[in-house]
Write a protein that binds this DNA or RNA. Structure first.
Lengths: 204, 204
DNA sequence: ATAAAAATCGACACCGTGTAGACTTTTTTC
DNA sequence: GAAAAAAGTCTACACGGTGTCGATTTTTAT
C-alpha cells in the first residue's frame, strides 16, 4: 500500500507479467465496449492481448476474474478522486461540486461503471466493490443533507435514508444517460441537482 | 385478443401445449428464485416441467426466450393493475396511492422484476418490455407533478425530466429493498414518498 | 377411423470453459 | 556468466451446456 518501491537501479523492476496484466485489462475494456460482456469470450481477450487462452489462465482464473480486476482498477480511480475533492461549507456548492465530479467520472468510466452495476448481482466480488463505492457516495450525500439542516436518524424521512434514495436516483439516472450522450449526462446532472437541493430544503 | 372461445362441448379446448407452456414458465420462475439466471440451465427447466430438453425447444428457442415470456407474463400483470388504479384529484393522495400499489407489485413480483431489470441490457426484448413499463410510470409521475403545479417543459427542472429521475429512484430503491425484506420495502416507500412530495412542492 | 397436426424423444455436432503437462524464457543466485 | 529457480507460454484434452435433426408417438379434428 505505501510502497512504489522505486527500483534500485534506474531500470524497471517491472515483471513482464505486469505488462501483460495491463494489456489483458485494456483488451477486456475494449472488448466490453465492442461486444459486451456476454459475447466476449476468454479466447477473445487472450487474442487481443497477444497470448493464447492457456497463458491467460496463468493470470486470471476466469472471465469473471478478469472483469473483476478491471472493475477494481476503475473503482480505485473513483476512490482516489473522491478523496481529492475539496471540502466546502456551503451545501449548495457541495451539491454542484459533487455532481460535476460525478459527470466527469461517468464520462471517463461509464462503460466499466455500467458493467460493474450489471454484474453486481452475479459476481459477488464486484458486488462488494460497488457496494463499498456506493457507501462512500451515500456518506457524502448524508453529510451534505445534515449540513443543510435535515435531521439525522434512522427514520425514512431523515438524512441517511434520504441519502440512500438520492444515491440510487443518481446512479440509475446517470447509468441511463451515459448510454445516450454527453449532453444527456449534463441534463441528468441538472435534474438530479434540482431534486437533491429541493429535498434538502435549499430551494425556495 | 377478444376471444376466449368458450369450448363448444363442456371439455377444455385447451391445447396440451398451453398447460406445458405454463408449467415451463412456472418452473422457470421457481428456478430463478432458487439458483438465479446464470446457474439455471435449459435442462433444469425442462426437467422441472417434466419433459426433455428436446421437447422444451419445441416451445421456446432458448433460455432467453423462456425468461422473456415469463417477464412478458408478469409485466402484463403490472399494466393491468395500472389500468385499474382509481384516479384521484389530490396529488398527495395520488402519490401515496401510487406507492402503495408499487409496494404490492414488488412484494408479489419482485423476483421477476429484478430479473427483468438485470437482463434489460443483454436481452433486447426484455429491455423493450421494461422500458415500456417504465414509460407508463414516468407518465403517471409526470401527471402528478403537473397537477401539483410543477411546470411542463423539456428543461431539466421541469416535470418530465424530474419524473424520469424520480422513476429511476423508485426503481432502484425498491430493487434493493425487495432483496431485503417486506419491512425494507415499506421504509423505502416512505422515503420515496417524502422525496417525491418535497420535489413536487407539496411539503411545507 | 383415419389423417393431419402437435408434442416428444434421443442422438449429434458445436462451442466455450478450465486443466494438465511439457516446453521456453526470464530472473536470481553464486 | 553458468546453473538453478521462477515465471511465462503453449498444445491437447475432457467436460458441460447449447441448439438442431429426423424418427416416433400422442393428441386433435374430421
Amino acid at each position: 500500500m505505501p510502497g512504489h518501491q522505486p527500483p534500485r537501479g534506474r531500470r524497471p523492476a517491472e515483471r513482464k507479467g505486469d505488462v501483460r496484466e495491463r494489456a489483458i485489462l485494456d483488451t477486456c475494456e475494449a472488448l466490453l465496449a465492442r461486444k459486451g460482456y456476454e459475447a466476449m469470450t476468454v479466447g477473445d481477450i487472450a487474442q487481443g492481448a497477444g497470448i493464447t487462452r492457456g497463458a491467460l489462465y496463468f493470470y486470471y482464473g476466469s472471465k469473471q476474474e478478469v472483469v473483476t480486476a478491471l472493475v477494481a482498477r476503475t473503482v480505485e480511480h473513483l476512490w482516489e478522486r473522491s478523496r481529492l475533492t475539496a471540502r466546502t461549507d456551503d451545501p449548495r456548492e457541495a451539491v454542484t461540486a459533487a455532481l460535476r465530479r460525478t459527470v466527469e467520472l461517468w464520462n471517463e468510466h461509464g462503460l466499466v461503471m455500467r458493467t460493474a452495476i450489471d454484474l453486481s448481482l452475479t459476481v459477488p466480488p464486484i458486488g462488494e466493490l460497488w457496494d463499498h463505492t456506493a457507501d462512500l457516495f451515500i456518506a457524502a450525500i448524508t453529510a451534505v443533507l445534515e449540513r443543510a439542516g435535515v435531521p439525522t436518524g434512522a427514520a425514512p424521512d431523515q438524512a441517511p435514508a434520504m441519502a440512500r434514495a438520492l444515491c440510487w436516483m443518481i446512479e440509475r439516472t446517470f447509468y441511463h444517460a451515459s448510454q445516450e450522450s454527453r449532453e444527456a449526462l449534463q441534463e441528468a446532472s441538472a435534474t438530479c441537482a434540482h431534486i437533491w437541493l429541493t429535498s434538502a430544503g435549499l430551494v425556495a
